[in-house]
Design a protein around this nucleic acid. Structure first.
Lengths: 207, 207
DNA sequence: TCCCATCCATACTGGTCGGTATGTTTGCGC
DNA sequence: GCGCAAACATACCGACCAGTATGGATGGGA
């Protein structure tokens, strides 16, 4: 479903514009309150074009998740983690600090799109739920593997259960982002992040 | 807005039934997708009765939050914390373990109603956002005060920043509940909870 | 007993929703 | 240049939504 034969070259642009606008709309309002009409109005694309590229609103929602939200998370978290051969805890701290420093209150107010969809859609739609579960599991696994490498390099406390720690890190990260989202405050995000950093440091082997 | 003059005694029952049904509906679907018609169908109450008791759907939503969700959180968390004069960390661990043990997968799949509304409504409606901020702050403050008492009794590491710790505890708790909600698994909730418990233990003064 | 506010019931409205049927344009392959 | 499918456009549909107008039932206070 990613790409059509593309006989007409501009077609891909239309599709991309729809995905971008839908991503903004879903980020801001969530999937269910997202309005197809608003997406069309914002892009200037007509309804016929949209339903040529996507079978339904749900299909569009899935595409936004797969082609926008997941890649974003991959480049921010998974790829750095996989490339990490130093101290994974320090890498996590750096990402948290960097991302926290760059975000404005407006960014923070939108939260994490994956977690937004998890909270909204998991009781309602199995397709979203399974996609989200896969994405979160990939994230968790990347953290666990990085922790494992750090452990084998003697950088972590030997008592650390890397699987449990990775699970908790993902959960508390989403929790911090969620708290800051409601507060609409990058300052709160940093405060919450500091709490998480304090936890992360307890995993390090301090010698 | 809590209670009308109640000239007719049955009136309070109607109102309570509406609040209960609306609470179920909002728990399951969120506020925006919650349908007034479904609430009426479930209760057997008519639309005239509903709009006699509540000025609007939003008013009903606020009442559900104030009179159902917040009291629930208060009895589960705030009151035990305020009554705690022993080790606050152990109290938190006990609550987490007890609540986790009692919950079924179906319960877990609904998540925390306060956090659900935070993620859904904070970018959309200031009234919800402020209510949620107050509730979360009350929760955080109750934890902080309990930690402060524990600290003064020598039960915690003297290096603990109780305010930051309380903030992080709330955030990570909501994060754990959110992860388990998407997984629809009480087992995941317990695993995440174990991670949080491991963090909580790092706050204790082990001597 | 009768008044009157409270409480509830019914029918309806305007608006938005996602989706579709049908027609037109576009541009590559031949 | 022609054929033809991909790509887009327009108009419309039924369903559902929150909310309202209006009238009727109810029951306690004077």
């Amino acid at each position: 479903m990613t790409a059509a034969p593309a006989r007409h070259p501009h077609s891909a642009n239309t599709r991309a514009a729809l995905l971008d606008a839908a991503a903004r709309e879903i980020r801001r309002r969530g999937y269910q309150p997202a309005s197809v009409s608003r997406i069309l109005a914002e892009t200037g694309v007509t309804k016929g074009a949209l339903y040529h590229h996507f079978a339904s609103k749900l299909d569009l929602g899935y595409a936004v998740f797969d082609e926008r939200f997941v890649p974003e998370m991959r480049t921010l978290w998974i790829e750095p983690l996989q490339a990490c051969d130093g101290d994974p805890v320090q890498l996590l701290i750096d990402i948290i600090r960097d991302a926290g420093a760059q975000m404005t209150d407006a960014d923070v107010a939108l939260g994490c799109p994956i977690n937004n969809l998890a909270q909204e859609m998991s009781p309602v739609d199995a397709g979203f739920r399974e996609r989200i579960a896969l994405a979160l599991e990939a994230w968790r696994a990347a953290i666990e593997e990085a922790l494992d490498r750090g452990l084998s390099h003697g950088l972590l406390q030997v008592s650390v259960d890397t699987r449990a720690a990775a699970t908790f890190i993902v959960a508390s990260l989403e929790g911090c982002i969620g708290m800051a989202k409601n507060a609409q405050s990058a300052e709160i995000l940093r405060q919450c992040g500091d709490g998480l950093v304090a936890y992360l440091r307890t995993l390090q082997n301090r010698t």
